[in-house]
Amino acid sequence: MVTFDNCGIYCAQAGIYIDPWKPVDKAIITHAHSDHAHAGMGTYIAHEHAIPVMRFRLGADIRAQSLAYDEMITINGVKISLHPAGHIWGSSQVRLEYKGEIWVVSGDYKLRHDGISTPFEPVKCHSFITESTFGLPIYNFPPIEEVHGDINDWWTKNKEEGKNSIIAAYSLGKAQRVLTHLDTSIGNIYTHGAVDNINKIYIDTIGTLPHTQRIDSSVNRKEIKGAMIIAPPSALDTPWMRTLQPYKLGICSGWMQLRGTRRRRGADRGFVLSDHADWDQLNTAVKETGAERIYVTHGYKSIYAKWLSTNYGLDATEVETLYTGESEDNNTDTQTKLAQDNESIQ
């Protein structure tokens, strides 16, 4: 019912692609990150909260159909619905049902609640397509509350030392998530323009965020003292950032679990905070679907597929997609370095 071709994940019966990377007629988009939402599709179908961001990034004139979670449409006999993936706000798993056979394309997901995304819901199916970004048992993320506490403590300490705190976080998803859990009594919060743009969309479509100020030409840099600044990783090592000295830099990413990555990225602090599932979450998600056929995409594909077949006796296959931007298996590592501002690959 679902196949993988050189454009993306394809359901022939419905004539529709999911997260295609080449222009096609009809595309369901799991979420608005740029490696999943590409330009040039005839029609886009996505969750209602994803579409405003897609319009902002792909063009206001895209043809888009919005769906709520659990809302079902039928195309040529295929029942299609979206279900919360918990990855970022507006992210979905796509459920496809045809003549009793059910597939779920999960896109990117996490099981833990981040406080702003609609929490992940397991969907029963026969075939499950899962990512494997952190599909190794070395990735066991610490409790989210602990990391939030660490971020606030770090901010407090930097402020006492007369330094700004810069958090590098992807502007869509991670930035809003970090913002929501900041202790606003510590000090002022500023944002990079790229983050502020997305914040505005969030506030327009979903709800409130702590008060922040965009750093533009009207802001006197000398007034930014002991502040928290949220910037996309692409702003690292730029003249923009140098104007914020003295500062300490923190990076929020699941890759920060490894000491080597932490040190290589040259951050003062690495916070293990990810919008992807870690090892335990992946295993839980796979088991809860009840699926017997698992297709493993971007991440430590071959390792994770081998684990699913040898440990759970599942029919697990690795699948090439362009979500990693590279064709080799078992390597998500280039994302860490090359895909600067998105943990989930460009």
């Binding site: 190794l136 070395i138 066991n140 490894l258 000491r259 080597g260």
Partner: peptide, 16 residues
Amino acid sequence: ESYHIVGDLAETISLL
């Protein structure tokens, strides 16, 4: 496999 990714025995075991 984990060790190949982490590159440090002590760290790998502590993570596993």
